[in-house]
């Protein structure tokens, strides 16, 4: 060993290994680059396959595919307004619940909780993301929907059903299955995603900034609202978009508790449909080309929308990383 290092190595001995090494290097580089290309190709192929599969529906219905609300299988008329509406409403409910809760959790974990308890609590919140969505769905159907039907929804329609403006949102029979229940379940499901990012960026705020605020006599709330949140604003918005992307595409949990109804209704207590749930429920039953194509076209819409939302999320999160890279 020693000898080989100390003495100049004869070219005749090394030329073959070095050349082999170069060739192996090129091969290794090629393999890893091909794997990286594959990731790109998969995303592109997914978009293309969806567009191709849905072309019949887009060609047949045109823009009406998005604006019409009649989903009539026997008549072969497919308008996706109801699932689109249901997807947007349930995702909005989910964010209304998840955003403040996630920020609260992140604040609790960075500033309030005793140090020893932070890791276990953070792990528990992460576990919310580990529970499979089918479990959320089943639990939602058998436990949470009856709870909503017996306790929450009667109270909601008694107290808000007859009010002006918001009244129509809370009318209808309390059956437990519907947009409100689905939105709440979705909200719980996206909490860990938003909370994880929020916690990370909260703890990355330079201590000097917080300490300056303390020195000026700020309360902890003022530090959060005047220093931490403004400083991490783009990342928090990015995290919200990340949660939105998750909520839009979530399938199984929503399929269980949304009711698969193709009627448009203003009430949050009424069953509805979502893009993902419609595909999950109906795809294996789709017996005509047009029906199947319409469901794939729905998948294409979902894919495009989540792609845009997740791209915005990623860009916002990259911005905070650059910012932290500069200042810390």
């Amino acid at each position: 060993m020693n000898a080989a290092v100390v003495h100049p190595i004869e070219p005749s001995l090394t030329s073959t290994p070095v050349r082999d090494g170069r060739r192996a290097d090129r091969l290794f580089h090629g393999i890893t680059a091909a794997a990286a290309w594959l990731v790109l190709l998969l995303l592109g192929a997914t978009a293309l396959a969806m567009a191709w599969g849905g072309r019949l529906a887009f060609k047949t219905f045109g823009l009406a595919f998005i604006t019409a609300s009649d989903w009539d299988v026997p008549a072969a008329k497919f308008g996706a307004l109801v699932p689109i509406y249901g997807t947007l409403v349930t995702s909005a409910i989910a964010l209304i619940i998840a955003v403040p809760v996630s920020i609260g959790i992140a604040l609790f974990l960075t500033d309030i909780a005793p140090r020893w308890s932070r890791a276990p609590i953070a792990l528990a919140i992460e576990l919310l993301a580990a529970i499979p969505s089918i479990i959320y769905g089943m639990w939602g159907l058998f436990i949470f929907a009856p709870f909503m039907a017996n306790h929450v929804e009667p109270w909601l329609s008694d107290h808000f059903g007859n009010k002006a403006i918001i009244g129509p949102l809370f009318t209808g029979p309390p059956i437990g299955i519907g947009m409100l229940t689905a939105g709440i379940v979705l909200g719980v499901m996206v909490i860990p995603f938003i909370a994880a990012v929020a916690r990370e960026v909260f703890s990355a705020v330079p201590p000097a900034l917080k300490e300056s605020a303390v020195a000026l006599g700020s309360t902890r709330w003022e530090i959060l609202s005047r220093v931490t949140l403004p400083y991490t604003r783009s990342a928090i918005i990015g995290a919200i978009f990340l949660g939105l992307g998750r909520a839009l595409g979530e399938t199984m949990a929503v399929t269980f508790v949304l009711g698969n109804a193709h009627e448009l209704s203003a009430s949050l207590l009424m069953p509805s449909n979502s893009i993902a749930a419609a595909i999950a429920n109906e795809f294996t039953e789709a017996d005509t080309e047009l029906y199947r194509s319409s469901l794939i076209a729905l998948g294409f819409l979902l894919f495009v929308v989540t792609f845009i939302v997740l791209t915005i999320a990623k860009l916002l999160l990259m911005r905070i990383n650059r910012q932290l890279g500069r200042t810390s």
């Binding site: 990731v39 998969l42 969806m50 599969g53 998750r246 979902l302």
Partner: peptide
């Protein structure tokens, strides 16, 4: 690729099912 991979990471899994069905 790093960017796209993060998007695949959060992409709706039902779309992946549809994709494999198609191909």
């Amino acid at each position: 690729v790093s960017f796209i991979n993060d998007i695949l990471l959060s992409a709706p899994s039902i779309v992946i099912g549809l994709f494999i069905y198609e191909v």
